[in-house]
Simulated assay, not measured.
Amino acid sequence: MNFVFDLDGTICFNGQPISEKLLNALERLVDQEGHKVIFASARSIRDLLPVLHERFHKYPMIGGNGSMVANHGNIISTVNFQHDTLKEIIQLIDTYHVSYLIDSDWNYSYTGSDTHPIFNSLDPQKRAKNVPLDQLQSFIKILMLTSSNMKEVEEKLKKMEIVVHTHRGEGVLDISPKGIDKWSGLQQLGIKEGEYIAFGNDINDISMFQHALHSVMIGENLQLSPFASENVILSEDVENIIVEKLEELGTMYRTNIDNRSTV
């Protein structure tokens, strides 16, 4: 069985790398239970790597909410904004004085402050370069951080043929090309509907929850909740609870596979 994990707020907390306790549990899924582990994040592939121990760097990864996909340590797929759409977005950025993080396939352009929460997770290992907007080779994912009128920006974006996720707690608009989400990223890896277990915590996990065989929501999210098979409440003991859930589901779905193979 495939096990698909969002990172931030799901198995990665407070901007820190995934704990060794959870990494060991993921390895047991693979080495002892025979399952496959996939990471699916809003982060770019570049910013996924620092929160994962290097022994996981060749695992399948979906970055930018599906706009980039990597496997065996190589980026195998990227999706860019269409030229006309990108032109409209850049016009909004200029008109409404938007600060942003725009990702290319590796480098990025960042105009936010060094006190913004996103800054701490932005290329901490200096794997890439922060370049001016006109020097980006491609435009894969856009985060709008602040604006003179974010409400108007959001209204105009939602009239475009793009995917917009609104992170209310952070006041951030998360923008991907049309038709791009975590489920589209999974399809790029050859994963089919009902062939995976999904773990997530936010609205950008809805698409992968919708097509999962079983889905586990970490914490509370009213928009994601209708698509979750079950819920793990955030607490001081959340990592131990997740480890127990992985052991339970790993055994359950290994048993199901074993039973089917004997028919």
Rank of each mutant, 00 (worst) to 15 (best):
K182W: 07
N65E: 11
F39T: 05
I180N: 01
I140S: 01
Q188A: 09
L122C: 02
S113Y: 02
F119L: 06
K178T: 06
Y253E: 05
A25E: 00
V69I: 10
D202F: 02
I93S: 01
N14S: 15
E170G: 04
K182H: 05
M61F: 09
S235Q: 03
K245V: 09
I180G: 11
K245C: 04
K158A: 06
N120D: 10
G190P: 03
K126H: 15
R43D: 04
N80M: 07
N204S: 12
Y196Q: 02
Q187E: 15
L23D: 01
E247D: 14
L22E: 09
G112I: 10
H83A: 13
A212S: 15
N74C: 01
P124M: 13
V98G: 00
V131C: 03
N240Y: 07
A70R: 02
S99K: 11
T95M: 07
M252D: 12
T255E: 13
H53Y: 08
D202S: 14
N259A: 15
N259E: 12
K245D: 09
I118E: 15
P124G: 12
A212P: 08
L52Y: 06
S225L: 14
D205M: 03
P177V: 11
F227S: 03
I11C: 05
D174R: 10
E247K: 14
D8N: 11
L133S: 05
V263W: 09
I180R: 00
I62K: 00
F5C: 10
V216T: 13
M160F: 06
K151F: 09
V69T: 07
H116P: 06
Q125E: 15
F5H: 01
F56P: 04
E154H: 10
R28F: 08
F81Y: 13
L133K: 08
T78K: 09
H214D: 11
S77T: 02
D258M: 11
I206C: 06
R43L: 04
G15E: 14
Y196D: 06
V163N: 15
L52K: 03
E33Y: 14
M252A: 13
E244K: 13
A198K: 02
T85L: 11
S41Q: 10
V263E: 13
D174A: 06
R28Y: 10
I197A: 04
S41K: 13
N240L: 11
N221F: 02
F227L: 04
V164T: 14
M61V: 03
A212N: 05
R43K: 12
F227K: 02
H214F: 15
E161A: 12
F3W: 04
K126F: 06
D8R: 05
F3A: 02
F13I: 11
E20F: 03
Q16D: 13
A40T: 03
L224Y: 09
D6K: 05
A70P: 01
P117D: 08
K126G: 06
F139A: 06
T10N: 10
P17E: 11
I45A: 05
K141F: 09
R127W: 10
K245G: 03
S235E: 07
F199P: 05
V263S: 09
I242W: 00
N24A: 15
F5Q: 04
G73H: 03
D31C: 09
E244D: 14
Q210L: 07
M1L: 12
T262Y: 10
L234V: 12
H214R: 09
R254S: 02
A128R: 02
M160N: 08
L52C: 08
P132L: 03
I75R: 01
R260L: 15
